[in-house]
Design a protein around this nucleic acid. Sequence first.
DNA 1: TAGATTGTTAATCGATTAACAATC
DNA 2: TAGATTGTTAATCGATTAACAATC
Lengths: 216, 216
Amino acid sequence: MKAIKIPDKTIARLSIYLRCVEELESKGTASISSTQLADRFGLNSAQVRKDLAYFGQFGIRGLGYYVTPLRHSLEEILGLKRAWNVALVGLGNLGAALAAYKGFQEKGFKISVVFDRDPDKIGRQIEGIPVMDIEAIASVVRKRKIKIGILAVPASAAQAILDAFVKGGVIAVLNFAPAQLTAPRSVKVQNVDLSALLKTLSYHIAQAERPTSSTP
Amino acid sequence: MKAIKIPDKTIARLSIYLRCVEELESKGTASISSTQLADRFGLNSAQVRKDLAYFGQFGIRGLGYYVTPLRHSLEEILGLKRAWNVALVGLGNLGAALAAYKGFQEKGFKISVVFDRDPDKIGRQIEGIPVMDIEAIASVVRKRKIKIGILAVPASAAQAILDAFVKGGVIAVLNFAPAQLTAPRSVKVQNVDLSALLKTLSYHIAQAERPTSSTP
DNA sequence: TAGATTGTTAATCGATTAACAATC
DNA sequence: TAGATTGTTAATCGATTAACAATC
């Protein structure tokens, strides 16, 4: 009833907390305070406590947070207690790299099918993953109950692929195409524009080199 | 003197505006209003005007913004009027993909040297780019006046590489390692944690499937 | 019990949006 | 001139931070 809106930034920080807590656990640390946690990332301790408090009471007053239970809670909140099948579309340089990338698998995200439109690629396998025709996206994704899609296609093709994803029941998409896509509000589209990130950096350098502005 | 702080979010949006303006230009559109521009991205027209106004007066009252001059201005602001040499470290799956990725080159970012610690790779070339020993990072980067670095190494190695970058004069880094790195404040570090982005998505799905919460 | 740290409310800060005089 | 749209100031909104009672 009380529709408390949890900020996207809070969710993004949960991943950071999880990473930290995993490291602490492997070192055998039993507990950590919000201040210690915050200091590691240049965050504020109140922010850490508030972020966590959106989801329940995980701490112990006077002590802090027990590391292992906190890890479990964070995994539960982030939906990491289960394995996810992921569909990848586009086998260009970036797509092929993502298919081969071990990092996803380790975190429980398994790319279980790849789509491309190149007849030379369709029917083959890459890293043991079958490559299928993009025409089959909606039906395959639906049959396999895949909820997460990755778009690694040119901007011009991205919207059509997203539409196929949505048709097949995908509700979360990681989009590497530099394009503004439209989807139903229930579908979460996370854009990652690698070139745009580099442009941000070149701004920073150009700025640093500009004689007018002093570095404050 | 008046140290007006320009928000990072504004800079990120400039890239988006630029992309839009490039498209308009290729279609032959002469001018666009802030409202039209905003509508394409679900932004507010005042925000578009304010973002641009940080850098000068680019519009014409009663008309809007002329597309070609605006593109030039945005390129100038973002530091895209020149080519940038970029150093890439790490030739794993992701690093190799980035080396081969055409998108960066097209936008004026040329990966001109790659570093790895694997003796089998050192001395070879990838995509025509020389592969050198990570021990040489600081000296090579300094000699070549490279200001932008990309980190595609495991988290455990990232801080040492960043230190070498800084030593060599790099002042902007795109970091794909899931690690919290420290650098002088004059160095801009842009983190991209691909696994964390997927975790954000899995949260979204877990959330959508949770019976308690209604979709507002 | 004394000391520490949480969970949470209130204050602050910064970014977004509305409104409108300036002006093409 | 009339209509449109900018540049900019003021109002709003949301997120961050400070403060502190609750409590381990």
